[in-house]
Amino acid sequence: MQFEHESRDGIDIVRLPERLMMADAADAKAQLKAILLDGRGRLILDLTRTGFMDSSGCGTLVGSLQTARKQGGDVCLFGMGNNVRALFELTKLHTIFRIFDDEEAALRAMH
């Protein structure tokens, strides 16, 4: 699995896949870490397509946040659907990530 990735004004944007789960977790974590370390530690994750996430997917996102914050950066999310939103509320992940409705709002927050 190769993430779609682009950079805008020094901010990395990654489009996450339909599912973020155990099979891809190690690879996903490594990709996000490499993007953060190659960049400025500012990452926006597009969850528009992501309809399913398990505990491994949660761990992948938390790991990327920790990597970013060690660099003095951050990870913002946007495009969250109802399934992932419910999971974030259950796991309280919504308390540690900044979550936006759309990409432009996330970009504004990162600047």
Binding site: S55, C58, G59, V62, Q66, L90, L93
Partner: peptide, 11 residues
């Protein structure tokens, strides 16, 4: 929330 693992059974 900041834990990277350990959520499976609780979920």
């Amino acid at each position: 929330p900041a834990a990277e693992s350990g959520r499976g059974v609780a979920m």
